[in-house]
Design a protein around this nucleic acid. Sequence first.
DNA 1: GACGGTGGAGAACGGGCGTTCTCCATGCGG
DNA 2: CCGCATGGAGAACGCCCGTTCTCCACCGTC
Lengths: 205, 205
Amino acid sequence: MASSDDQAVRATIVAAADRLYYARGIQNVGMDAVRAEAGSSLKRIYGLFPSKDLLVAAVLDHRTAMWWSGVDRAAAGAQTPREQLLSVFDFLNSWFRQDDFRGCAFINSFGELGATSPRVSEKVRAQKESFHSYVRDLVRRAGLADGVALQVTLLVEGAQTVAAITRDRDVVPQARRAAVVLLDAAAAEAGDSRAGQGAVPADGR
Amino acid sequence: MASSDDQAVRATIVAAADRLYYARGIQNVGMDAVRAEAGSSLKRIYGLFPSKDLLVAAVLDHRTAMWWSGVDRAAAGAQTPREQLLSVFDFLNSWFRQDDFRGCAFINSFGELGATSPRVSEKVRAQKESFHSYVRDLVRRAGLADGVALQVTLLVEGAQTVAAITRDRDVVPQARRAAVVLLDAAAAEAGDSRAGQGAVPADGR
DNA sequence: GACGGTGGAGAACGGGCGTTCTCCATGCGG
DNA sequence: CCGCATGGAGAACGCCCGTTCTCCACCGTC
């Protein structure tokens, strides 16, 4: 069958839905608007995505791919784990500058549907945990304690939230500067001696 | 007019709507559900709030009051601006522990309605900017550069986002530790004579 | 040219929701 | 006891939306 055609149409529909959902919010975009934006027909859409929920899931997968593509592109020139970690902020910087920037699609979707759609909720959690895991891996390769990975992750997520809401231009530079300070502090602690464990209750990971 | 009665009923309705909106998302809660939860009538509700949009605005105002009340309570025992800054994380900690915690209502509302409701968008922005301003004031009183205020704000917002999505227990402790590092670094930079003191208030929590 | 099937346009259906309206019970001043 | 304002219950209205269905134009095959 025309499976390759199907793949192309699928991609067109997902891209169209993504544009609309991101700009207006998922619940504010009807299937008819998606149809119009994709230049397709409802029958075709429902043939490829049996329900709106599944289309939303496909859009989130698409967003995941876009995210990693941006992260990878920014990390391409980095030589060390530390540089790779900091390159995330270069990615954020170019992303936030786009005039259609409206925050993190995952965070927005979670706010909108997290309480009612387990599918959405699960996709969002998977994406966030996978990014945290990516950061943790780089932190380990840099020879630092895991804790700083969560710290950097908080900066990245906070930057997305604050940039979306306030459009403050200093967000990414400050986030990056904070990350540098935190990485340096963790490096100093690691270089010090193994005595330097945080005073956290139950840090038995 | 029974204006004091009106005030009490207003508060009841707002509290009921807040509970439902926070738990399920604004768009997933109809006026009829609010009526049932508030034990009131639609006529009464529409007499006090001419439209759902205005009820939502009142709910956001209510959330703002709750936020500052929590922040103030946590800051009550703090002696210095630095302690006040760190007490924010104590507030977050007790908040995130509540089993009905579902993230920051402002961030959720923004994700849901930010693109379509200027009123919501504006309230959210005002709340976030007012918190940033609160942090900046404390940072200044601690004799530190403004930049670190944004850094701490990013940690606070990131903590709310990540805690909502992943329910990771380490979020607040790590956010607090990161804040300490950032404040210390800013103090060292400021060349303040008292900078190095009180680096990590051991079990001070 | 007839024909079956493919896919598009868009109407139709069922349900939900914001908002308004109708009807009625209640209580109070004459 | 009557009239009337008050406010509750919930039906009604209009609209939107997810999903399905109907109709029809088009295309390759006999």
